[in-house]
């Protein structure tokens, strides 16, 4: 099944195989949300897989990934 014109509601990440986009990348309802920071307004942007990479507050398209919350050990030397 292929779409020549993607539905405006379901956004695809736009990777194409032979000129046709697949819909495997449409929004997955039970995917894990990842929090990003907007590069313009510093708002927290929760995103799921397949969602448009865009700030909900200001529409900026540059988002930053948050620092890992895994513990890092350093020697104070």
């Amino acid at each position: 099944m292929s779409q020549q014109q993607p539905n405006p509601q379901t956004y695809t990440t736009g990777y194409t195989t032979g000129g046709a986009t697949t819909d495997t990348a449409t929004i997955d309802a039970n995917a894990r949300t990842v929090h990003y920071k907007c590069g313009d307004c510093d708002q927290d942007v929760p995103l799921k897989r397949g969602e448009p990479i865009r700030c909900r507050n200001c529409g900026h398209r540059v988002l930053y990934k948050q620092r890992t919350n895994r513990m890092v050990q350093f020697e104070a030397r």
């Binding site: 620092r67 919350n69 513990m71 890092v72 050990q73 350093f74 020697e75 104070a76 030397r77």
Partner: peptide
């Protein structure tokens, strides 16, 4: 201070530099 366990540090001081300062 000998060991520093950093869970989060989003300040502009790098982790290792901060650890050294704390030491």
């Amino acid at each position: 201070i000998e060991d520093v366990f950093i869970y989060n540090n989003t300040s502009i001081i790098q982790d290792e530099v901060l650890a050294h300062r704390l030491g």
